[in-house]
């Protein structure tokens, strides 16, 4: 695969990451905060925190996605950036709790309120993510040890 093809692939996946990790969450949170008549309140500070961290970490993830997906398959640089991306992804997911989105209090007008705590679910998800990190580390070791064989196979394609 040539340099141009690699970069096209990189830009494609960067676009997907921007849409999935920045645009869709931002639109969702904006819609929730903008809709009038819905019987719950969203504190402005929570909204500001969420939008800031989603944009900030989403941008970093998109940049890393470009580096990862534009790298040749089974290359060491792909492995390294895949690992960094997983780590940043963990921080991104955790930033939802950090900004208050994992423990949302819905105030129902005239009735009271109820609280939705997603922290336990995120805890299990983080445990699963740890296994992903282990796999990524194994990938880097594998790509490094079998570097010559992988390169030969890639040249044959």
């Amino acid at each position: 695969m040539g340099a141009v093809k690699n970069m096209v692939k990189g830009f494609l996946f960067t676009g997907i990451y921007v849409v999935v990790s920045v645009v869709i969450p931002l639109v969702t949170f904006t819609l929730i905060s903008d809709i009038e008549g819905i019987p719950f309140e969203w504190e402005q500070q929570d909204y500001n925190n969420i939008t800031f961290w989603i944009t900030a970490l989403g941008l970093v993830m998109s940049g890393l996605a470009f580096f990862k997906y534009s790298s040749p398959k089974q290359s060491i640089r792909k492995g390294v950036f895949a690992l960094i991306q997983v780590l940043v992804n963990c921080i991104y997911i955790w930033s939802y709790t950090f900004s208050g989105a994992a423990e949302i209090t819905f105030v129902i007008t005239g009735m009271g309120f109820f609280s939705l705590n997603l922290e336990a679910m995120i805890l299990i998800y983080m445990g699963v993510y740890f296994l992903t990190i282990i796999i990524k580390i194994y990938d880097i070791i594998d790509f490094t040890v079998n570097r010559e064989k992988i390169r030969e196979n890639r040249m044959k394609e």
């Binding site: 970069m7 580096f67 790298s71």
Partner: peptide
């Protein structure tokens, strides 16, 4: 990240 990836890819695309 994007610029450095472009530079790295133009120098060493892999194959």
């Amino acid at each position: 990240l994007v610029i450095s990836a472009m530079i790295v890819n133009s120098i060493w695309p892999g194959d």
